[in-house]
Design a protein around this nucleic acid. Structure first.
Lengths: 337, 337
DNA sequence: CCCCTCGACTGAACCGGTCCAGTGACCCTC
DNA sequence: GAGGGTCACTGGACCGGTTCAGTCGAGGGG
């Protein structure tokens, strides 16, 4: 039950290996009649190209890599990555590219994985996510010479191709909306402070609040888990200058925050308005349903994959600014009582 | 900036390619001194084996495949897959195996992906998930001769190696617990009826209820989304013989059901007890926190990966029964009022 | 001192493709 | 009808490893 090779096809068709190769790859050098005959035989005996042999000739590996550097328990929590992956996938599979996925413990391991993949010729490029401030991976990847697309703000991407969305605009839209509703004390429950998008949102939040002349606008940093989201909310709601609106950096913390508010006998939205970053079924399932910043995450992933494939093809690529998150209002935001 | 090959090492060390190959693979045929010299040079010039070249010699691809056949929007919803993947990953990366992931639209596409991966020599095996009743994929994969581990009950796995957990036992434990609390009218909001684990749970639910002499124990099937979970709950709670306890097949539907109950001014757990299948941060974040059937999903994935690697290594493997889901009680279950 | 064995190493075939330099056959043109 | 060009196809080198059949020299035994 050996797998058929082009040599088998060549023998059956009574031509040389070279002719078969031309025929199967749609290249000139064979007559249409011969090509049809060869294709028929190939089809009949169930021939598939051996990628290893193809790759050996300096061809593409036809795969791209994604190493995720988050502990398993956080990965499961947020729909973000799964949606991102399915978006990336949609683009890749349309071009018959495979996605190599690995979950790693830290950035060092992540770089080791990229180095191995690239060194072994397993991938043609990679997507870098969760950029940190002064991320050490950027210069390292630049040095490797591997085609890489970065999901994150251009300011952190060095010479790599960034795919990003304007988080600052989304923060501004949200705060301005809350202020228009009459809120003056707005807080932000943020994610990991070392992530570059966290600091970008933090800065935007501070700037907008200051620009609108709001009172103290506290920011609390968390690790994105529901527990820390709940703790942060409890602390904010226990302060003497209690905020009337809280903007959360993900959905799970927003839901946790909602529970805390209800536990403390606060009415949402009358006593407290809540906005979550990233929509998910979760946000629509709770009462009241949450006002959210909506992103098309699969599209985000698809765009990144597109850019990466272009980069691999040697097409010069410029940064891609994706659509900014849009505010979708639901029952969790209202004028303060 | 060509990647170094063993020929480069051979030249620098003044030996033949063959000797370098022996040295780098820890095989006999070279002296320890030469081996050390070769390793030092390989290390210094940053040599990595080209897997394509290795694979060409009939060696392993050092990758396994996973094709997920669910629409993107469902994938993001449940933490299940992400946790499963991270568990699989943990096992694979310890053995330097890569995971090839692809999200597909239907089973036909899924088989196409497996066929391509296997035919192209990209993977050494695969993991099959979401088994259906009389799943057409099982005989097809059997015919391909690809090593495959199935996540699901042995009865649906044909000659493939199953990795499974005793869902029936978990159903029994749950129902018996609810009955012990005093419940007589228990309902089940199930997932997709064509999935084999759904039918197994359905049957167990019916058997246990009948065995305990309970009244009508309705089962409603859904597509796992919060919307359908909410609809099903609304219907159940509107019936004249309203159940006093509902067991949901996933966490998102349980949370949706909780919201519906609260909307209908029912107190959870006094008027309605709720149990969710699979724990997640979500279950702990809502009020009251949900009683759940806990599984160690990453471990489940890791076991599947282990079995698959053993299968690939030609070690004979038998079915693996994983730990049954355990009931973790929280505030959403209590004696009926 | 010769033969044998064994360890260390070489040279080349091989895996399954790609692709380039040739080779005829045929047609067109002046 | 000779010269030139194109088309269809062949043969073989090549990619970067693995592996096997040898070669060579040192060491040991009789």
């Amino acid at each position: 039950m050996r797998r058929p090779t082009i040599a088998d096809i060549a023998r059956q068709a009574g031509v040389s290996k070279g002719a078969v190769s031309y025929a199967l790859n749609g290249q000139p050098g064979v007559s249409e009649a011969t090509r049809a005959r060869i294709l028929a035989i190939a089809n009949e005996i169930g021939w598939r190209p051996n990628i290893a042999a193809r790759a050996l000739n300096g061809a593409r590996a036809h795969a791209v890599g994604l190493a995720l550097c988050r502990p398993a328990r956080f990965l499961g929590v947020e729909p973000f990555f799964m949606e991102l992956i399915s978006g990336i996938e949609a683009e890749l599979s349309a071009r018959s590219y495979a996605l190599l996925l690995q979950v790693v413990g830290d950035h060092e391991a992540e770089m080791g994985v990229y180095r191995r993949w690239w060194g072994e010729g397993r991938v043609d490029g990679a997507i870098l996510v969760d950029l940190h401030l002064d991320d050490p991976r950027v210069p390292q990847v630049e040095e490797m010479g591997m085609p890489v697309v970065v999901l994150g703000h251009p300011s952190a991407a060095g010479s790599l191709v960034p795919v990003w969305a304007d988080d600052s605009a989304a923060v501004r839209e949200t705060v301005e909306y809350l202020v228009a509703l009459g809120h003056r004390r707005i807080a932000r429950v943020a994610g990991l402070p070392r992530l570059s998008h966290t600091s970008i949102r933090d800065r935007a939040f501070g700037d907008v609040c200051a620009g609108l002349g709001l009172d103290a606008c506290p920011i609390v940093h968390t690790d994105y888990t529901g527990e820390e989201g709940a703790r942060a909310t409890r602390r904010l709601l226990s302060s003497p200058e209690r905020p009337t609106a809280i903007v959360f950096d993900n959905d799970i913390m927003a839901v946790a925050g909602l529970s805390v508010a209800q536990e403390m006998r606060l009415d949402v939205p009358a006593d407290l308005s809540i906005v979550a970053w990233d929509d998910s079924p979760l946000c629509q399932v709770v009462r009241p349903p949450l006002t959210v910043l909506t992103r098309d995450i699969p599209a985000y992933g698809a765009h990144a994959a597109q850019r990466l494939l272009a980069l691999i093809d040697g097409v010069e690529t410029r940064p891609l600014e994706d659509e900014a998150p849009r505010l979708t209002t639901r029952g969790s935001t209202a004028p303060p009582a």
